[in-house]
């Protein structure tokens, strides 16, 4: 018994020392976004240990960053509106673009967006739009609009993203409002719409909505384009629909958290992911739309994401109303 305890103590000391090695990088990214192999090959090439954590919504990222001690995380991947908010709150650092040698791989189409006009704080990593995926084995009706999903026939048959801005934004679009409307009337309309939708929703899931379609748990899903395309790879009867009212655009960006401790490693990581080969490996597994000039794997053409697309915008303190609405409809 004593020997066992001694062994455990020694083991702990050894591993404890190992953990202290300086060459680490703390990454916080969306779930299902970078294949493990890409991370592993980065670790091997630079001999840096990546501590990789995930989140499922921008709000979760914001909560994690603002509640943990400064310098806990190095590289994070906020979406457009969250970049703006985090910059205002001083949660991200200005980037030193001279340290990113692969900057010229970017498609200029994705640069200079409203949320960070001069790309001082963010560089686009991947982008996506919200689509409707339908399993045509069981659903034959014509579906072109979000409002078509209100059909009573689809009771308990739809999976939605578990993302308050996207889902409320979608309800606003469906009720003829701006996707970022914060007026009481608009939010009431959205609430009513979502309450009507409630009976049809089987689950809210942002991490892997594709699983619901692949396992035939539901026949309809509102999800990111790549999730829908992966589902279609598994089941060819799945059709991807681009809703008439328009779609939410989401551009996720590389950002460096303020007071990051491993800044040099962070730049190495960003630069590594911006290599054509890495970017290609990423979209090969998760067919999102890469802002790099590579052969895309998604059927969505990079230029098309902005057509009929709307950004989720930073609405400042009105976030409270969205939080409340989200709690109400769930």
């Amino acid at each position: 018994m004593k020997k066992v305890i001694m062994f455990i103590i020694v083991l702990f000391i050894v591993t404890g020392c190992e953990n202290k090695s300086e060459n680490t990088l703390n990454v916080l990214n969306w779930s299902s976004y970078i294949p493990d192999e890409v991370i592993t090959s980065f670790e091997k090439e630079y001999n840096i240990k990546v501590n990789y954590g995930t989140y499922s919504s921008n709000e979760e990222l914001l909560a994690k960053i603002s509640s943990s001690k400064e310098g806990t995380y190095d590289v994070i991947f906020p979406s457009d509106y969250m970049v703006e908010l985090m910059r205002e709150k001083g949660l991200i650092e200005k980037l030193d673009t001279t340290k990113i040698t692969n900057l010229n791989h970017l498609n200029p189409l994705f640069l200079g967006q409203e949320y960070d006009p001069n790309n001082l704080y963010s560089i686009p990593f991947l982008s996506t739009i919200v689509v409707i995926a339908v399993n045509r084995e069981n659903i034959t009706d014509e579906i072109t609009s979000y409002n078509d999903l209100l059909n009573d026939k689809y009771k308990n048959n739809i999976v939605f993203l578990d993302d308050q801005r996207i889902v409320i934004g979608m309800a606003l679009l469906a009720t003829n409002h701006d996707m970022n409307d914060t007026s009481i009337e608009a939010l009431n309309d959205a609430k009513e719409w979502l309450l009507k939708m409630k009976k049809n929703i089987k689950a809210y899931d942002s991490d892997s909505p594709k699983t619901f379609l692949i396992t035939k748990e539901t026949d309809i899903g509102v999800m990111w384009n790549a999730e829908a395309e992966i589902a279609r790879e598994e089941n060819e009867n799945i059709e991807i629909i681009y809703p008439r009212e328009g779609h939410a655009i989401s551009i996720d960006n590389y950002c460096i958290a303020s007071s990051a401790k491993n800044v040099e490693n962070a730049y190495l990581f960003i630069d590594y992911l911006m290599r054509y080969e890495s970017a290609f490996d990423i979209v090969a597994e998760y067919p999102y739309i890469s802002p790099l000039r590579i052969e895309q794997k998604s059927e969505v053409f990079p230029g098309d994401i902005f057509k009929n697309g709307y950004y989720v915008k930073n609405i400042g303190s009105r976030m409270k109303d969205y939080d409340k609405l989200w709690a109400d409809i769930k």
Binding site: L28, S32, K49, N51
Partner: peptide
């Protein structure tokens, strides 16, 4: 960061 436990890892895997 870097202190994932088995239950937490499985939790995130159940989701993804």
């Amino acid at each position: 960061p870097g202190s994932n436990t088995l239950p937490l890892k499985i939790y995130s895997m159940i989701k993804t």
